[in-house]
Amino acid sequence: MLRGLVLDFGGVLTDFGDDFAAPEPPLVGVVRTARRHGVRTALLSNADGLWSPPREWDGLFDVVVVSGEVGLAKPDAAIYLLTAQRLGLEPAECVFVDDLAVNVRGAAAVGMVGVHHTSIASTVDELAVLIEFPSI
């Protein structure tokens, strides 16, 4: 069973789709729903060590892993393993979402379920099936 949701920042959590007037990117709402259903959440970004998530997302993620802070970067297997470890989960218990296929393949190589984000609708549909909670 999948108990962890790991998402990339740029291109995934910054994707507003066609609704640029929305108060927050739609996948942020998915993270909120996942947390309400007991899913552990992580943000995994290849940003430098000076970057941090927006303040309004405080408490949204159980774990934030930033490449510049840990000295690892996607698609290196070690960064996915570190993220799962920090979540307290096995890689096979996690689904990873990224807009770059190479990064999704890296996560899949360590046993995570990978979702290649190409649109909000397709990502939400896949996550609804994979995580198995109602009404994402």
Rank of each mutant, 00 (worst) to 15 (best):
S52W: 05
F133L: 10
A34I: 04
G29S: 00
S119I: 02
T118G: 10
V102C: 15
G49V: 14
H116V: 07
G59W: 01
A47D: 13
G114E: 11
R105P: 00
L130H: 10
A42M: 02
R40L: 12
R86L: 15
V70P: 01
R55S: 06
I79T: 04
G4V: 00
P25W: 06
I120E: 02
G11M: 02
A92L: 10
G10F: 15
S45E: 07
L43K: 02
V124K: 08
H37D: 04
G11A: 09
L100Y: 13
L60E: 11
A34T: 00
G4Y: 00
L43I: 03
T33V: 11
V12G: 04
P26I: 02
V6F: 14
G71C: 05
R55D: 02
M1W: 03
A84E: 08
R55Y: 05
L13W: 07
T83L: 07
G111W: 07
Y80L: 12
F133C: 03
L27E: 04
P75Y: 14
V66A: 03
S45H: 09
P91S: 11
E93I: 00
L81S: 09
L7N: 06
G4H: 02
A21S: 13
L81W: 15
D99K: 05
V70T: 15
D62K: 00
N46M: 04
L13I: 07
D48Y: 11
L7I: 07
L100R: 13
S67I: 08
P53D: 03
L5R: 07
A107D: 14
V31S: 10
V64I: 07
V6L: 10
D125K: 08
V104L: 08
T33N: 03
A78S: 10
D8S: 11
H116K: 11
I79C: 13
I136R: 07
G59D: 02
M1I: 15
L130Q: 09
R40K: 10
G17Q: 09
A121T: 07
R32H: 10
D99H: 02
S67L: 09
S119Q: 12
P23V: 01
M112I: 02
V104S: 12
D15W: 04
I136E: 03
V97I: 04
Q85F: 11
I120F: 13
A73H: 08
D76H: 13
V63M: 05
D98C: 03
V31E: 01
L89T: 04
A77V: 01
V115G: 05
V12Q: 04
L7T: 10
T118Q: 12
M1F: 03
L100E: 06
T83A: 15
G49L: 06
A121I: 12
R36P: 09
V124Q: 08
D58P: 01
F20G: 12
A128L: 03
D58C: 02
V39M: 05
S52R: 13
A101N: 15
A109Q: 12
V104A: 07
G11E: 13
S122P: 06
G111T: 04
W57Q: 00
R105F: 14
A108Y: 06
G68P: 09
